[in-house]
Design a protein around this nucleic acid. Structure first.
Lengths: 216, 216
DNA sequence: CCTTGCTTGTGAAAACGTTCACCAGCACGA
DNA sequence: TCGTGCTGGTGAACGTTTTCACAAGCAAGG
């Protein structure tokens, strides 16, 4: 087991949230069954996911809420603080900056960039928008580890290239476009257009389910 | 083959985008190999995905770009126009309203709601923010088919309950919380917190890969 | 100490998704 | 007309993820 599936990692994030809630409710212990129920998965799934990283529970008792939360926090790399740069100061970039939840989770925006001269120099929350031309130098200086791309789709690949060239190995891409990056760079996508279309498919299908095709 | 996997649907959306680009470049035909290359998957995957819905290509030639695009458009249910309501007029909701790309893809925002009396009545782009208390009646009148939840996490489930009670069967959830809905309702999630954490895991792992646990 | 009731951790099985490999079929040129 | 080169469609093989099912282990109570 040297490779953890992305599904497992995503579920760990979910478990983490549930544990926060459950902890706030004052519970000390939680069983895999209860944890699973609150997340809409099976208890075996919970135990299997956790088993990839160690044995955190006690038979007959369940999991200690605070302890398991701390373990998952470490597994997800949330113990340390990640420095983030946002490239693209449009609507999504601005919304992201305004969301204060990230800081609490260990993500700190340290720089904002945009290509548009009319935006450069503007204040966005506590940040001043820098010219994207300065980005490579700032990235190469080690000022941040994660680049968030909130530019239009057409610019996204160029930005990704610039980020990777500057040594950035983590990219969160909000642009609706596939990014090609070197193997040692990790990209995660947030694509609401995709989700809208997936929803459209599900709703359209429900009304007129496809028929089994005749054998050709 | 009565069930199409979500992965396949997502890839269809991606193919659709590539076809738009390729069409704009003036190409008439495209092979599964080329289409696959531009999307970062295998050609067998492309052919398999499409085969679930019919035979759209011609052996020796490939796929007609305009035709395949139209087929996928139909498959995804993008031929019709979907009416959308946004619940939560905060940063994300506002960013969403400002994004004009949705209309082009067949999604039209017809109403915006918020609970906060200070926001109700405000103009957001071409929309006036309504009180969320009016939402159930408007939803039940059939004014929209898709509800987008951009409220804080704590309110998300209540909104989802209200939407489903009013007959809405498609929900796009931006709140970082699992929504429980009846079986005939489809939920898709856009969760940037999750993606940040997944990225954090990948970056943390890269630096200190887990060791194979000793057998217990 | 021993029994009872509950829960974890995990091999094995099942389900699911992806890739392979090859036949069928088309255009083109000789 | 026939051969060549290329491409789609698809059953089968493969790999991965999820679920099942049960032994191992802990707490509590008598």
């Amino acid at each position: 087991m040297s490779h953890i599936s992305e599904s497992t990692v995503r579920r760990l994030s979910h478990y983490y949230r549930v544990l926060e809630e459950v902890g706030a409710e004052g519970k000390r212990m939680i069983s895999s069954h209860l944890l699973a129920e609150r997340e809409g998965v099976t208890s075996a799934q919970v135990r299997k996911d956790l088993s990839y990283f160690g044995s955190f529970g006690r038979r007959g008792l369940g999991y200690n809420v605070a302890h398991l939360r701390a373990e998952i926090r470490t597994i997800l790399g949330l113990e340390r603080r990640w420095k983030v740069a946002v490239v693209g100061a449009g609507h999504i970039g601005s919304a992201l900056l305004a969301y204060r939840g990230f800081l609490e989770q260990g993500f700190e925006v340290v720089a904002v960039f945009d290509r548009d001269p009319r935006r450069v120099g503007l204040s966005l929350g506590t940040h001043v928008v820098h010219d994207v031309a300065e980005m490579p130098a700032i990235a190469a200086s080690g000022a941040f580890e994660i680049g968030v791309i909130t530019t239009p789709a057409a610019a996204a690949q160029d930005i990704a290239d610039a980020l990777t060239a500057a040594g950035i190995r983590g990219i969160l891409n909000f642009a609706p476009r596939k990014l090609f990056v070197p193997k040692n760079v990790t990209v995660r996508n947030v694509d609401m257009t995709l989700e809208f279309e997936s929803l459209s498919f599900a709703l359209a299908e429900e009304r007129s389910p496809r028929k089994r095709r005749a054998r050709g």
